[in-house]
Design a protein around this nucleic acid. Structure first.
Lengths: 363, 363
DNA sequence: CTGAAAGCGCTAACAT
DNA sequence: ATGTTAGCGCTTTCAG
């Protein structure tokens, strides 16, 4: 190792200047140049101006985020794991509202969201994407419990917060009382006298199957939200003395109105007088298809959705309200707490049935 | 500088192991340990297995993305600059479709999207967020030309691709023929005999103002999309011999149906027989408010939207179709090309008027 | 208020 | 096929 002369005295043309060059040009040490950016109070106005002027002179683009991330030990970003490609995930207003809450919660801390959408032929994001993500923490949004992406997060040892995924041991989660919400929806229909009930369900497995789901498939689901809502429907229906096996459950591979409409078409031969839809998007599809078929709501068929999105409110759809924005917001606070080493208080949010025209003629 | 003993022989409890530790435990060099992860073909099965076993043994979480990003010189992420907070930006299906295309284009390259939503009281993202973003490139989505976030990108010298923002000099852009689309919409209405036309406009400035916009405000807009669509309307109206000053232009601070409905309420006193809406979301709001007011479409008032989103198609709204997914996809390809140092071919996509019930009784 | 020293964790030439 | 060497760009004690 040589004398005081640094290893890089010469700089090729085309290389971008670094803080080292700025420091040299300004005639200060590297630490002082660094402070000019990140701790302005640590130097005199004069020196700071000199450094900044040198930076401008050299065309220095400011401290490299990658360099400072390595040094500081954090990146200022948060990965969000989605179960679908962007176009599908964000076509659900419930997801958008939730992520809006998440973004708003972490924004004051200057944290950005690295979105990892679901991979083409899988449910969650590609595990490799998770392994390479330059982030400080991860939020998983409504994935299957056995999603490989979640496993990748855990093996990286990244702080993880789950939304709509209560079943991950040792992972802080923001949870909604899905079972309770589903029960209240079912009780509402039963209370109205409906006995021929059908279900339009969210996906039960990651195999992109659409169609009637038998008992086995129903109980095998690894999607906590789906499982809980289904359980809520079932216990209520059985408590009313009805046979669950007689209740047709149509699984929709995607949470879209198109699939909801298809669900109605598939369920119609069973002559249901009421349909429990696991999301408002599905319910809106059911509504559309039923209306197109000339049926009246709620006289010919009653529908209850889930989420209570703005679109559902506009459409007069009875639905189970859940605090979507708050759900994301709490998840954001949990991430921040986790990152700060603070204790996490688990959050469970409650649901509430909102009755509208789709089930009640008096509304 | 001492002998062969590295500076860090001791490791405190709680520290996470690094590649150095794995290499030591496996009895190989650091580069070999590194290769075990990123270039498996560079070492024998035996050695690789030994390294991986040591990693498991030590609880090594895999190579740190930050470390490798610094060394490799790229991060595998792409910033997306949005003009609004997440909840608003993604409530527009047109934006979602565009970003879906973008995500799909870069996904094969393993590139993730770092979303930077608009800051609270501004139009674009906080410039500081841009400065700290650990990304290789940036995509700006429909921002104002003078957005500070865009300036921050340029001063960082990051590769930038603009969507719906043709006016940035030296920046590759994916552009839609907004003016042409707007012209065809206006020509359509004029051809139908409408003479009392009103406009429901997207935001003209970043001051969150809703209301009638005078000529000065109209021509001062720095939002290229808004400017182009407005210009298209105007030239067509004037070419028909009408006075543009007599055309009421209601500016909507946000691209939502609520604002569209408010626009209709504000425009109604002007007794328009036809309304040009700058987006389908606005048009859908106009439609809703007009219907609620007991007006029939298109007899009492005709409406043409812009974007041709799925919701517009369902609603029977005449609209100017633009290839939303493709727009994002091309932007993604441009980013990839930019990153690869390949030449960029500029992309301009065309629009097409789709006539439906909202303007044509025969549809 | 400023500077010297050390190293965050990794990988890519290059040599063996 | 494996090891040696060097350094990506930055920040932060700590000493003056």
């Amino acid at each position: 190792v040589g004398a005081a002369v640094g290893p890089r005295t010469l700089r090729r043309v085309g290389d971008r200047p670094t803080l080292r060059d700025v420091a040299a040009a300004a005639g200060v040490s590297r630490s002082t140049a660094s402070n000019a950016y990140s701790r302005p109070d640590q130097l005199s106005r004069t020196v700071r101006d000199r450094v900044l002027a040198a930076a401008v002179e050299l065309g220095y683009p400011g401290p490299s985020p990658t360099g400072s991330a390595l040094r500081r030990g954090h990146t200022g970003a948060l990965a969000v794991l989605l179960g679908d490609r962007l176009g599908y995930a964000f076509s659900d207003p419930a997801a958008v509202l939730t992520l809006d809450g998440l973004a708003s919660a972490v924004e004051p801390a200057g944290t950005a969201l690295l979105v990892l959408p679901g991979a083409a032929r899988a449910s969650g994001p590609a595990p490799d994407g998770v392994r390479r993500a330059v982030v400080d923490a991860v939020v998983a949004y409504s994935l299957s419990d056995d999603d490989p992406a979640v496993a990748a997060v855990r093996s990286r040892g990244l702080p993880l917060v789950a939304i709509d995924q209560p079943r991950l041991s040792g992972v802080p989660a923001v949870v909604v009382d899905d079972a309770g919400g589903a029960r209240s929806a079912a009780e509402h229909l039963l209370g109205l006298g409906h006995r021929r009930i059908a279900v339009a369900a969210l996906e039960l497995a990651t195999d992109e199957v659409t169609g009637l789901a038998d008992q086995e498939r129903q109980s095998a689901t690894r999607f906590p939200v789906t499982a809980d809502r289904l359980a809520g429907y079932r216990t209520t229906v059985e408590a009313a003395g009805l046979d669950w096996a007689a209740v047709p459950v149509h699984e929709c591979a995607r949470n879209t109105r198109e699939e909801g409409a298809a669900a109605f078409a598939a369920l119609r031969p069973h002559r249901p007088t009421a349909i429990l839809a696991m999301s408002d998007e599905l319910a809106l599809g059911v509504l559309r298809a039923a209306t197109a078929a000339g049926l009246r709501m709620p006289e010919d068929v009653a529908v209850v959705g889930f989420d209570d999105t703005p679109a559902a409110q506009r459409a007069g759809l009875s639905s189970v309200r859940q605090p979507l924005y708050d759900k994301g917001w709490h998840a954001g606070r949990q991430v921040l707490a986790l990152l700060a080493g603070a204790p996490i208080d688990p959050v469970t949010l409650s649901t509430e049935l909102v009755v509208r025209r789709s089930t009640d003629t008096t509304q």
